Measured scan of single mutants.
Amino acid sequence: QIFVKTLTGKTITLEVEPSDTIENVKAKIQDKEGIPPDQQRLIFAGKQLEDGRTLSDYNIQKESTLHLVL
């Protein structure tokens, strides 16, 4: 699982696999929060994550925290 922290300070927990794409993660966030993926920007280690890449591409491991910017 990974954590996604929103600007409001809320933390969302997501069940993911390293092979999941960023697009996939955004879809999971939409399921939980109702935020359309095209409004979501995910930041990890100061980098904006691209939809077509996977979590493992960015070396995002379990218990990692991503930041969600709208």
Rank of each mutant, 00 (worst) to 15 (best):
N59S: 08
V4M: 02
K10R: 12
F3T: 07
L66A: 02
D20N: 08
R53A: 08
I35D: 02
H67F: 13
E33M: 12
P18H: 07
E50K: 07
T13V: 13
E17F: 10
D57F: 12
N24W: 11
D38K: 11
I43K: 06
Y58F: 04
I60C: 03
E50I: 07
D38Y: 12
G46K: 04
T8V: 08
D57H: 11
G52N: 11
E23V: 08
K28A: 07
Q30G: 07
S56V: 08
I60Y: 02
E15Q: 12
T21A: 05
Y58L: 06
E23R: 15
A45P: 02
V25A: 02
P18C: 12
D57Y: 12
K47Q: 15
T21V: 05
Q48T: 14
G9D: 05
I12D: 01
D51C: 06
E17V: 12
I60R: 00
G9Y: 03
L7D: 12
Q40R: 02
R41S: 10
R41V: 15
Y58V: 03
H67V: 13
L66R: 01
Q61C: 09
V25T: 03
L66V: 09
I29R: 00
Q39R: 12
F3S: 05
T65M: 10
I12A: 02
L68Q: 02
A45T: 05
R53P: 05
N59F: 08
F3Q: 05
V25Y: 01
G52D: 12
V4K: 00
D51L: 06
Q1T: 14
K5G: 04
N59V: 04
Q61L: 11
V25G: 00
I43S: 09
E23P: 03
N59D: 09
V25R: 00
T65I: 13
K62D: 15
V4N: 01
K26W: 03
L7M: 15
F44C: 05
V4G: 01
G9S: 04
F44N: 03
K10C: 14
L14R: 00
G46I: 02
V16L: 07
V25S: 00
S64Q: 08
I43Q: 07
T8R: 09
T65W: 08
L66W: 02
S19I: 07
F44G: 03
G9F: 03
I60N: 01
D38W: 13
H67P: 01
L42R: 00
P18L: 14
K62P: 15
L66C: 01
H67G: 05
E15T: 12
T11K: 07
T8N: 12
L14W: 01
D20H: 06
G46A: 04
I60Q: 01
S19R: 07
P18K: 06
Q30P: 02
I43H: 12
K28Y: 06
T11P: 04
L68K: 00
V25Q: 00
I2L: 08
L7E: 15
L42C: 01
A45F: 09
I29D: 00
V69M: 13
K32W: 06
K26I: 03
L14Y: 02
E15I: 13
Q40D: 01
D31Q: 13
P36N: 07
S56K: 11
P36F: 06
E50G: 04
V25W: 01
A27L: 13
D51A: 07
I29W: 00
Y58K: 01
T13P: 06
N24I: 14
V16M: 08
Y58G: 01
P37I: 14
D38G: 12
T8G: 12
V25P: 00
S64C: 09
T8E: 14
P37R: 13
E63C: 14
E15P: 06
L70G: 08
L7K: 09
K32E: 07
K10G: 08
L66E: 01
D31I: 12
T54D: 03
P36C: 10
A45L: 13
I22Q: 02
E63Q: 10
E23N: 08
Y58C: 05
Q1D: 05
S56F: 11
A45G: 14
E33H: 09
T65P: 03
Q61R: 08
E63G: 13
H67R: 07
I12T: 03
D57N: 05
L55M: 06
A27H: 14
A27D: 07
H67L: 13
V25H: 00
Q30C: 14
I60M: 04
